[in-house]
């Protein structure tokens, strides 16, 4: 498609190509009760070609969600349980000597999949985390002297448990920055919990099938990249990010002492990408401020460093972001 885009045509294109979203959502609902935000976040990350860091207690259907998504997209899924004794080779693969061929052969690791669940990523030492995060960023893995490009689409959903911090290796800020979204998931409601019980004690589980191919997802990702982001929206995004760095300039003097360091330029990029994906989910060929605000918490919460004062006052990054959103003028 040329650089000049007719928004109506783009809207029509989105309408014609976004039918699978309804089917994916329906398929997900068959397996997962509630967790709408989790499902939407996975779809945003998938459409924006990013990765998701998930924080929540065990048993909230994190694994099931990504496994179901992999089934619905007809993609390869791998799960890596991160443990303290895990090695980088266990993630990306290694060279194994073949006695028969008398050569070293490449043994690809579980990272070679379309959807990867990095479970409890903070349980593994830094070198393993780095290996994964590098693969996420570069979308390629080098084993020995050979470099392998990872399949498309490639989505990593890493999880970490917020309650058990003993014996963990918290992700450095520079590495969490590489996740497009950090999603906090909570417990289901009473009604949802009852529905979960009913689903799990039922004798027959409804089978789900692939509703979209990997190629279609790749095509849709290209369409998402064509979604129009006006300069006003760019300015809004930049203002939001700059407000985390220089709060006083935006009349947020109270935040000056609460923020240790602000969001990086990668936050601006991620905000724009996620807003585009959100606009696609809404069937729009252009981004509006609602899209930016809708994804702002998930995109920014792991990119702002809070000071000791903030922690002492029990203020989290979500509250800081909410304050910023309330203060920065909407175009």
């Amino acid at each position: 498609m040329s650089e000049t885009v007719n928004i109506r045509e783009l809207n029509d294109l989105i309408a014609s190509k976004s039918n699978f979203l309804t089917m994916i959502r329906t398929g997900m609902r068959h397996r997962i009760v509630g967790q709408k935000h989790l499902i939407d976040s996975l779809l945003i990350a998938l459409l924006a070609n990013g990765h998701v860091l998930l924080e929540g207690v065990p048993g909230l259907a994190k694994t099931l969600a990504i496994k179901t998504l992999a089934t619905l997209v007809d993609a390869k899924y791998n799960r890596i349980q991160f443990t303290p004794d895990l090695l980088p080779a266990d993630v990306i693969g290694t060279l194994i000597y073949s006695i028969k061929k008398e050569t070293f052969e490449v043994k690809k690791g579980p990272i070679f999949a379309n959807f990867v669940l990095a479970d409890e990523i903070n349980r593994a030492p830094a070198k393993v985390q780095s290996a994964l995060l590098e693969a996420m960023q570069e979308r390629q893995v080098t084993i020995g002297e050979e470099t392998f490009a990872l399949d498309k689409p490639f989505l990593v959903m890493a999880t970490q448990n917020p309650i058990e911090q003993e014996g963990t290796y918290p992700l450095p800020e520079a590495q969490t920055d590489r996740f497009l979204l950090k999603v906090i998931i909570g417990y289901p409601t009473k009604e949802e919990e009852k529905e979960i019980i009913r689903q799990n004690i039922a004798s027959a589980v409804e089978a789900i099938h692939a509703v979209v191919s990997r190629n279609e997802i790749t095509e849709v990702q290209k369409i998402v990249n064509m979604i129009y982001v006006d300069e006003k929206i760019e300015n809004y995004i930049v203002d939001l990010v700059f407000a985390t760095r220089e709060p006083a300039k935006y009349g947020l003097n109270d935040l000056e002492d609460l923020i240790e360091y602000g969001a990086s330029p990668r936050a601006s990029i991620s905000l724009a990408k996620a807003a585009r994906a959100y606009a696609f989910l809404q069937g729009r060929g252009y981004v509006i401020p609602e899209d930016v605000r809708a994804v702002c918490h998930d995109v920014m919460r792991h990119r702002i460093g809070l000071s000791y004062e903030a922690e002492a006052n029990n203020i989290n990054s979500d509250e800081v972001i909410t304050t910023i959103l309330d203060k920065v003028q909407v175009p």
């Binding site: 709408k36 939407d40 945003i44 959100y278 609602e290 605000r293 809708a294 918490h297 309330d326």
Partner: peptide
């Protein structure tokens, strides 16, 4: 109110 991903889509 704020258009949050989990609230208002």
């Amino acid at each position: 109110r704020m258009a949050r991903l989990d609230e208002t889509p």
